[in-house]
Design a protein around this nucleic acid. Sequence first.
DNA 1: CAGATGATGTTCT
DNA 2: GAACATCATCTGC
Length: 228
Amino acid sequence: MATIFQADALLTSPTRAAQRLLGAVLVHRTPDGTTSGIIVETEAYCETDPASHTFAGRTERNQIMFGPAGHAYVYFTYGIHWCFNVVTGEDGKGEAVLVRALQPLKGLALMAGRRDIQLPSESTGRLLRRAAREPRVRKALISLASGPAKLTQAMGLSGEAYGVDLLTPRGSLRLLAPGTPVPTRSIVASPRVGIRRATDKPWRFHIAGNPYVSRPSRVGRVSPQPQR
DNA sequence: CAGATGATGTTCT
DNA sequence: GAACATCATCTGC
């Protein structure tokens, strides 16, 4: 039923792949249950980019980024957090897209438990309706996965996911094609977050107006032309 | 609201 | 020994 994300769509520049990944769905099945979410914010990293883990060449940690597209690059940072990337580009290239935020779809209670966030135990639909008028519920839903380390925690992702092929149809961790495609006019580009180098490159992308992004857009809608 | 800070461990220089 | 693709919590407007 659920269609796996098209591998070909990742065989391009990471900035373009980052835009194509918006709207795609990440699904993780574990013994505790299944969680999933729509990718609403991404960032592109490539070898010639001083902010990229691959800038200085291959290392044990980044080797998967040089491998074929569609695998997971997961790394540990700040002594506490895990971040999740989708490897993109041709085999041998050292490129990936950091997934920065998800709009929760399934397994919200499990996500909340993993995040230690209080959420009324009601159906997703009911929660969404409550969120419309109750700020507390709204904030709880938004804080489930609105950041690169929040989403890995909510989805139950860590080092075990390193190198996993996300495009395997029956895999426990899968990347699915967007339910509804995100039109280019709804994609906003802005500078990447939390880096010290190459801060001028507008290689962060998010879905315009989506409340589940890690931070609001200051830059306006961007348009038609993808960088690079 | 903005800005500062501590947590905590791996990776790289 | 420094840096780190972060987050929660705190302080002071």
